[in-house]
Write a protein that binds this DNA or RNA. Structure first.
Lengths: 201, 201
DNA sequence: GTCTATACTTGGATAGAC
DNA sequence: GTCTATCCAAGTATAGAC
């Protein structure tokens, strides 16, 4: 965690500033103040504030992805997967990862060139969700009905929407209940037989 | 549509600017340029840019809500409701209403005082969704399982997340497929008997 | 109510000393 | 590689003429 060189310090400061002050609040001066270094260093090392913020997203994305894969590996059925999703939601809130993602998405409405960069960094999450869905649902009747990649897209969208509303609400209470509901629902789904027939891997 | 007085012209210009340039792109100067009026008029009539943007959200919200209630009135079952949701999605994309909402949510990360204002304007949509769910699902076995207000919250979150991703993607293709899927799924739900027992109103 | 002009602030970015 | 100093652009908001 302790950043050894300046580039690291800038990335860490960018992450902190994005979480605490949002996209528009993450100016070169604000980031420099957070990390107690000179404002001009951002331009020397990254060329622009924009690229420093994308580097921040890169870092948290890589860290979270590693954590997700580890957590998901233990899930063998839909109920386990919902449990992992709940865990991921909590970890994301705590780590601030989705906050950073949401802030950059917000920023994309100003700087349109950010859009493709963000899409490229979201794609792995959709892939990840799709792989996990395939893993527990492949061969089941439900898999015939719902293409895994569409479902994966919907789930990522749901995470984003929930995070935004949670942010505005100032409370995660309603999202909490939704994950509990998803747990109950996955149990129902298991019992229904709609998830049967998948090869356990 | 033709704005008769200046206050109307400002609101219309704010709506257009929010859609075309996003929250951060909607400065007093940009809005004034869109509507071909003097920049200082925004401060005279609304006191601040922030309040002019909220007035824009107020207007589109009121307009859309009226349209939704009309469209929803014809739906008597879950399949009809999914049809209405699809319709709403298309109308929102076309009218740019969710874009405006998403932009202001994005802006809330900068100006934290926007948060409560936006929550207050989203609340009616959640209420609306809950009422409609109640209307078609009340008394059914599913209604015992899934509280309508939680489901309503999830649906609004899903709309928001989809809109954001659609925006970044530059294509609504995946969202389109999701609504088609929701249609198929609602048919399945009807046939399952999980929706039975509700008093048709 | 609407205009011009302007004061003030913040931020991106660079030059050039060290 | 890091610093100070600074330029320039864009934005909010207000004063004051009309």
């Amino acid at each position: 965690m302790a950043p050894d060189d300046t580039k690291d310090r800038i990335v860490e400061a960018a992450i902190t500033t994005l979480k605490e002050r949002g996209y528009a609040g993450s100016s070169a001066r604000a980031i420099a103040a957070t990390g107690s270094f000179n404002q001009a260093l951002i331009f020397y090392h990254f060329g622009s504030v924009r690229d420093a913020l994308l580097a921040a997203l890169d870092r948290t994305s890589a860290e979270r992805m590693a954590a997700y894969r580890t957590a998901a590996a233990s899930a063998t059925d839909i109920q386990g997967l919902v449990g992992v999703a709940t865990e991921i939601y909590h970890e994301d809130l705590a780590s601030g990862h989705i906050t950073i993602l949401a802030e950059l998405i917000a920023g994309a409405s100003t700087d349109r060139t950010l859009g493709p960069e963000i899409v490229a960094r979201i794609a792995p999450w959709i892939d990840f969700a799709r792989e996990e869905i395939d893993r527990v649902a492949q061969g089941s009747p439900l898999a015939q009905l719902v293409p895994a990649d569409d479902l994966a897209y919907a789930i990522v969208a749901q995470f984003l929407g929930l995070e935004l509303l949670t942010h505005l609400d100032g409370t995660a209470e309603r999202a909490e209940r939704l994950f509990q509901l998803a747990g109950s629902f996955s149990t129902l789904l298991s019992m229904s037989g709609l998830m049967d027939g998948g090869p356990p891997r």
